[in-house]
Amino acid sequence: MRHTPPRVALFATCLVDLYRPTVGFAAIKLLKEAGCTVVVPEGQTCCGQPAYNSGDKADAQDIARSVIALLEPYDYVVVPSGSCGGMIREQYAALFAADPEWKLRAERLGARTFELVSFLVDVMGMTGVEARYEGMATYHDSCSGLRELGIKGQPRALLATVAGLTLAEMEDAEVCCGFGGTFCVKYPDISVRMVSDKVERIRATGADTLLAGDLGCLLNMAGRLQRLGHTVRVRHVAEVLAGMTDAVPPIGEGQARQGGAR
């Protein structure tokens, strides 16, 4: 048993910072409920993935160095995204393959870095949440979280304890939604086709709510659902687990349409 609560640095990610601050506050609430002391280190920007995946290694390394330096002092780093979490946990060390000093620092930080929901379940031993959400949800497994970090059962286990919520599995939940960072604007035709397939799978479940753990995928799926006029409510899983769905309308829904009704 731990006597002093772990000091957890929340790395909010650039998309949460820019698009969906509520996810950051939901993460803080959940981490506190799990018994953590939460710090939001000042000066955080982005994990550097756009540069890394565009082949711009020098910029990615620059950004990674400042993220490592910023987050090193804490017991854990928690990220409300499998993609950005995977970047820090798995890819930073690869980025510094030729630089032993930074590689070591990257590895040490990586070993203490977790995606939010898997951290709550696997590290903090959380088995349930005090939250209520009326609806039938389907959960999309985002690629990096699933294949890089092994996130599959953790969000489902916690969602099962949300009062009022039922979970309907979609077919091909593990198939990419077509976001892929810059891929979605570099190859929009292919990306839209992939997200259209995903939308069909979502619709086939009859669920009124779509949840996932990565904002990039959520923006992509919400954007396509709404372009096609479907009224599925799209939310980051942390919003539901933290019981903060009253704080903000679903992704892509305005103040006038809160709740997804139309």
Binding site: R20, P188, V195, N220, A222, R224, Q226, I251, Q255
Partner: peptide, 25 residues
């Protein structure tokens, strides 16, 4: 803030060609 999303945005045609762009909070 009202609609919650954009049907088109300058310089974002790659995205908004087939998807709405959700508005930030």
């Amino acid at each position: 803030r009202k609609r919650g999303r954009f049907g088109s945005l300058p310089l974002a045609g790659g995205w908004t060609g087939g998807r709405d762009m959700p508005a930030p909070e």
